[in-house]
């Protein structure tokens, strides 16, 4: 425990770095997946293509991808942007299917009713389809958030400052405590992110019983509302 107190400054600093690197991919993953997910839900052909690409991207192992991204972007290997881009790709790949499921969970009767009372396509998307797909999107985003926070640690291997530093340094110094601190700090960051998402869900979607937030996709979202 002593080690924690004497190194608290470093732990705090790397935790902040970790948070700063984790947040953009999660947010970008949500935003970018909306048009793709909508398109995937709209036509059968685009569904096959988009979900196929997403599946392929998601199958790419993280460290090799992180090594390859600088070549694709033309950046230096130490640039933290590589990590953010790589994790954004994973986030979008993971979210597209969820978003498509979310839009599919909106009852056609509801969207037809919205059209019947005069909603334009655009307005109907923002005020009917998106809110009703919200619980599914939230469930997917929570998964993205947890795996992003954990994957950020890989960045340390290529020299980006993250909580993963404690794993590498602990291994080098043969000091398990440091690794445990890194794991605990990473899990704590993931828990805080999750809490923020759940809270945001309650604020933005007060009509849902967030306690029963469906974690398993599109089934039975509409039943309770």
């Amino acid at each position: 425990m002593n080690w924690v107190w004497t190194n608290f400054g470093l732990i705090w600093e790397l935790t902040l770095d970790h948070v700063v690197l984790s947040a953009p991919p999660i947010i970008a993953g949500l935003i970018l997946s909306l048009p793709f997910g909508w398109l995937a839900n709209r036509f059968r052909l685009s569904r096959g293509i988009l979900l196929g690409i997403a599946g392929l991207l998601y199958a790419i192992p993280s460290l090799p991808f992180l090594v390859a991204v600088p070549t694709l972007l033309g950046t230096k290997i130490l640039n933290p942007v590589n990590l953010v881009v790589a994790l954004t790709v994973y986030a979008v790949a993971l979210m597209v299917r969820t978003t498509a499921d979310g839009f599919a969970s909106v009852e056609p009767d509801v969207t037809k009713s919205a059209t019947a009372i005069g909603y334009s396509r655009w307005w109907r998307f923002w005020s009917v389809e998106l809110p009703l797909a919200g619980p599914v999107l939230l469930a997917g985003l929570r998964v993205v958030s947890v795996s992003t926070v954990s994957l950020v640690t890989i960045g340390s291997i290529v020299g980006v400052n993250t909580l993963g530093y404690f794993f590498l340094n602990g291994l080098q110094r043969n000091f398990p405590t440091e690794i445990v601190v890194g794991i605990v700090a990473t899990v704590l960051v993931a828990l805080v992110f999750d809490a923020v998402l759940v809270l945001a869900g309650r604020v933005l979607m007060p009509w849902t019983a967030v306690e029963r937030a469906p974690r398993r996709g599109a089934a039975s979202i509409m039943g309770s509302s």
Partner: peptide, 23 residues
């Protein structure tokens, strides 16, 4: 089963691998 499997994703693989190697 499924929630726990999801929650375990929070464990950083690099941390688990290095920790077990030391232990």
């Amino acid at each position: 089963v499924v929630p726990v499997a999801g929650a375990l994703r929070a464990l950083p693989t690099l941390g688990l691998v290095t920790l077990l190697a030391l232990l």
